[in-house]
Design a protein around this nucleic acid. Structure first.
Length: 176
DNA sequence: CGCGTTTGACCCGCGC
DNA sequence: GCGCGGGTCAAACGCG
């Protein structure tokens, strides 16, 4: 059960082939956007049961760094811009993949089409407001969708092994 | 006692 | 305008 073979369906799909550069971009941003591609920095994790990992949608939305405070500042209508968000599916028995960073859960919501709740996590590192949400699919409960938002402004928290595997695999999509 | 999770309330955007 | 769905807050609680 602990085989970490991963394959990326996107590589065989012509229409999505152009996703590849984006996904790399995505991971660069994880590390605080050094354009040197420090994917190897992202070594981490004890996602012991991860089998497959698919980049789902490196959607690039811009977002305001924070949502506006409820009733505080009043009507400061900043354009609501979304941060970059990257989602990928992981076949895993555990909901939260340990990617080496330290996350604190701050919410959980039931989502419409899923019978499983979505969990919201925030990076506990001071000044680093990276968020991620984890959600298990209804149609295939062995698949966990993890969505990252923002980029870490600090080095990885703890060393791990499995995710390094994953990252190494993703390396092949680097445009250069 | 400090830190993380749980959980209900609240807010906001959007579609009807 | 209203209801719904998604996202966040924060108090209470649990655990090491």
């Amino acid at each position: 059960m602990e085989n970490y073979q991963m394959f990326f369906p996107i590589s065989s799909s012509p229409s999505e082939a152009n996703m590849a550069p984006n996904s790399c971009q995505a991971f660069n941003s994880f590390h605080g956007d050094s354009s040197n591609g420090l994917l190897l920095d992202w070594k981490s994790s004890s996602s012991r049961n991860a089998e497959n990992c698919f980049i789902q949608k490196p959607e690039v939305e811009e977002t305001d760094n924070q949502m506006m405070k409820p009733s505080s500042v009043g009507k400061q209508k900043e354009k609501k811009i979304r941060k970059q968000r990257y989602a990928f599916e992981t076949r895993s028995q555990v909901d939260v993949l340990d990617d080496g960073y330290h996350w604190r859960k701050y919410g959980q919501k039931a989502v419409k089409d899923n019978k499983f709740p979505r969990s919201y996590y925030r990076c506990t590192h001071q000044g680093c407001n990276v968020k991620k949400q984890v959600q298990r699919l209804t149609k295939d409960e062995s698949v966990v969708v993890t969505t990252y938002e923002g980029m870490h402004t600090h080095p990885i928290h703890k060393p791990t092994d499995n995710f390094e595997h994953i990252l190494n695999q993703m390396h092949i999509y680097k445009p250069f």
